[in-house]
Simulated scan of single mutants.
Amino acid sequence: MESRASTSAGALRALSVELKNLQSQPVEGFTIDANEDNLFGGYFKANIRFPSNYPYSPPSMKFLTKVWHPNVYENGDLCISILHAPVDDPHSGELPCERWNPTQSVRTILLSVISLLNEPNTSSPANVDASVMYRRWKEGSDAEYATIVKKQVEDSKKEAEHDGIVVPETIEEYCVKWAPPQHDDCLDSIDFDDDMMYDYNDDEEDEEEESDDDCNEEDEDSGQGEN
């Protein structure tokens, strides 16, 4: 049986969907139950600082909440390739395409951070102790990493409650659904009827007739002056 430590976020999402299907349409002879504690989230604050020449230089990100993670320094600074300047450093182990470039955005930064939190990079850790603990936990030989993270998650929920934030506790709550923007055409909000169009056309015709009358009067006046 695969250990819980090696279960990725993608697998959790897939298993969550399958669990619901099995509960709504059970298999004969089986009773399905699951402990979804590992789906519960935490509340971790962070600051992103943007340089004056953004987007040509990368921003920096720092966690304000204590995070025990292989790629987060003790002071909260996040170490991630996408926020590293685009310099040629063969000793870093990073490809140039993995580093910052002006086509990146806040959205790509956040997506990369979420991916890194789910799947830490232990090849070049910012927190060596956390990296060692994470590898042991993933191998199933030591649960200390999970213990520390769970405690931080529980502590963060108290801070979330203080700030009036509701922490997602299911995959459905965690994944914000995107709603397409409503079609906002001002013409669609106007109800035209035949009378309106008729009155509008009549007004135009009246204005044209008055204009023609004015022109005729001017012609008559001009003719009287010549006589």
Score class of each variant (00 low, 15 high):
E2S: 11
E2Q: 12
R4A: 05
R4F: 01
T7I: 06
A11I: 07
A11H: 11
L12W: 11
E18F: 09
L22E: 01
S24P: 03
Q25E: 09
E28A: 15
G29S: 08
T31E: 15
A34P: 02
E36C: 12
N38G: 05
F44S: 02
K45I: 12
K45T: 09
N47Q: 09
I48L: 14
I48F: 05
F50C: 04
Y56Q: 12
S57Y: 00
P59Y: 00
P59M: 03
P59C: 14
S60F: 00
K62G: 02
Y73S: 01
E74N: 10
E74D: 12
N75R: 07
L78Q: 06
L83V: 11
L83K: 01
H84C: 12
P86C: 11
D88Q: 09
P90L: 13
S92K: 07
G93W: 04
R99Q: 06
R107Q: 09
R107Y: 15
S112G: 06
L117F: 02
L117M: 12
L117E: 06
S123R: 00
P125W: 00
P125Y: 01
V128Q: 14
V128M: 14
D129F: 06
V132R: 05
E139W: 06
S141K: 10
E144T: 04
S156Q: 02
E159F: 11
G164F: 13
K177F: 12
K177V: 15
A179I: 15
D184W: 05
D184N: 12
C186Y: 09
C186V: 13
I190E: 07
D193Q: 06
D194A: 08
Y198T: 04
N201E: 13
N201H: 11
D202G: 10
E204H: 09
E205H: 10
D206I: 13
E208T: 05
E209Q: 06
S211T: 13
D212G: 10
E218Y: 12
G223E: 14
Q224F: 15
N227L: 14
